[in-house]
Write a protein that binds this DNA or RNA. Structure first.
Length: 421
RNA sequence: GGAGAGGUGGCAGAGUGGUCGAAUGCACCGGUUUCGAAAACCGGCAAGGGCGCAAGCUCUUCGGGAGUUCGAAUCUCCCCCUCUCCGCCA
């Protein structure tokens, strides 16, 4: 949510931003609705003031005078009802339009329409070289009895999976290693709920846009596809002190995604599943663009360092306008090398929002002057499982079909190679 | 699932139809005192919107929504949430 005042004063900037994101929103219509809203509000306020004034008179009046005042009041109120009805209608449209206005992308965000236009900022390491034909993770992991897709589909349905044996152990090893690695970066650890009240999905910007991609319960709660949702809800409606900022949270949660609209994509394997787990980095900081930028770089760098420690080649992408989510100011993706597909696949994403989210969540702090301001929010993937397993097993596969355990994970897995049981 | 209690400012907590946006305490800010600090004392202190250069005026908000009333934190109805006890349960 942008500030309506900001939209009024910077309509051109907001329009250009929406255009860059290829999002259609009628700013002119919003401004007209806002004019109308203000006019009606003033009208109602004036009448209300009159009503309040007369009400006080009635209190003191006696007998005939009182009866006269009551009669006059009836007429005043009749005149108000119509205006209030109209105000309601206008407000409804106003709110709908306000929710549709995307955040303004940073100047540095490149133009582009789809993810194909994302700009590569850097590449680390080289794709793993094999002196044999590398296998895909489905084949590898199935052969090593680390995963069971058939029974996963039997139990869960499409995109179902069981991680088992070394597949389960490897997942736990990654979680434990990630926990230790990221907590050295000065975060407060959290385990966050995945079932979250519907209203908070509007706050993160997942609703109303992505409704089809979210599982929901019969109690009007939704299953979060990322801990970003519960973690933002954590401080919703609160007033923080400047001293307690920045808040640095490392949250672990189950994540649920319906993947509606991607039915044809990645139909097998662990790349795209309905249910997964993720360590997520979150920051709430004071309302300063420089702070946001600083933390954005830092959170992204944390993930890069983690992946570098696993010694798997990655590349960093700058998300282009057309691929940038409505709520984002700027976003980086990190993609990991997947040998079987001979390409880099997304593993993590780091974004900042300025006060776009916190305005909706109503998370504020008192600044040095005692003024209430909306905090800035950021979030970034630390590491998701099981998707990360894809790159680990494929990059570390050996000619004999076994998998070498990355050095940093050996203490957590308890062995250096995963072989046939 | 059953029964009961309750949701009020940053926090705690009074207020049950009329200058109540709301007593009081804590926290916070300013001042007096002090070498400085603490304590004490004095004063200030809800948020959001509109009009205005400003001073100021004004509207809204006491969990959410609807209603009764000239007037609602206060009465009625619906919903949500929290707590306690009982039941069930990993």
């Amino acid at each position: 949510m942008l500030d309506i005042k900001f939209i009024r004063e910077n309509a051109d900037v907001v329009k250009a931003g929406a255009e860059k994101k290829h999002i259609k929103v009628d700013i002119d219509r919003l401004l007209t609705a806002d004019d109308e809203r203000k006019q009606l509000r003033q009208d109602i306020d004036a009448k209300k003031a009159e009503q309040n004034r007369r009400s006080n008179e009635i209190q003191r009046a006696q007998g005939e005078e009182r009866a006269k005042l009551l009669e006059a009041m009836k007429q005043l109120k009749a005149g108000m009802a119509e205006t209030e009805e109209r105000y309601k209608v206008v407000m409804e449209e106003w709110q709908k339009l306000m929710l549709a206005v995307p955040n303004v992308p940073d100047m540095s965000v490149p133009e582009g329409e789809t993810d194909a236009d994302n700009k590569e900022l850097k590449r680390w390491g080289a794709p793993t070289a094999f002196d044999f034909e590398p296998k895909g993770h489905v084949e590898l992991m199935t052969a090593l009895d680390m995963v069971d897709f058939e029974r996963g589909i039997k139990a869960h349905g499409f995109r179902g999976y069981f991680l088992k044996n070394d597949g389960a152990l490897l997942s736990w090893a990654i979680w434990n290693y990630a926990r230790e690695f990221f907590l050295k970066k000065n975060f407060n650890p959290f385990i966050a709920p995945a079932i979250v009240n519907k209203e908070f999905f509007y706050g993160t910007g997942h609703l109303p846009g992505d409704a089809a991609d979210i599982f929901q319960t019969q109690d009007d709660q939704y299953l979060a596809g990322t801990a970003e949702v519960p973690m933002m809800a954590y401080h919703a409606g609160e007033v923080l002190t400047q001293e307690e900022l920045p808040k640095r949270y490392l949250a672990f949660s189950a994540c649920f995604r319906r993947e509606a609209g991607s039915h044809g994509k990645d139909v097998t394997g662990l790349i795209r599943v309905h249910e997964f787990y993720k360590w997520e980095q979150l920051v709430l900081c004071e309302a300063s663009h420089d702070e946001s930028v600083k933390f954005h770089e830092e959170l992204n760098r944390n993930t890069e360092e983690f992946i570098e420690s696993l010694k798997i080649s990655y590349r960093q992408l700058e998300i282009c306008g057309g691929d940038l989510k409505a709520a984002h100011v700027r976003s980086y993706d990190i993609e990991l090398w997947v040998p079987k597909e001979e390409t880099y696949r997304e593993i993590a994403s780091a974004s900042y929002y300025h006060d776009f989210q916190t305005r909706r969540f109503n998370i504020r702090y008192k600044d040095a002057e005692g003024k209430l301001r909306y905090v800035h929010s950021l979030n970034a993937t630390a590491i998701p499982t099981p998707r990360i397993l894809v790159s680990i097993v494929e990059n570390y596969q050996q000619a004999d079909g076994s998998i070498k355990v990355p050095d940093v994970l050996v203490p957590y897995v308890g062995k250096s190679h995963i072989t046939k049981p």
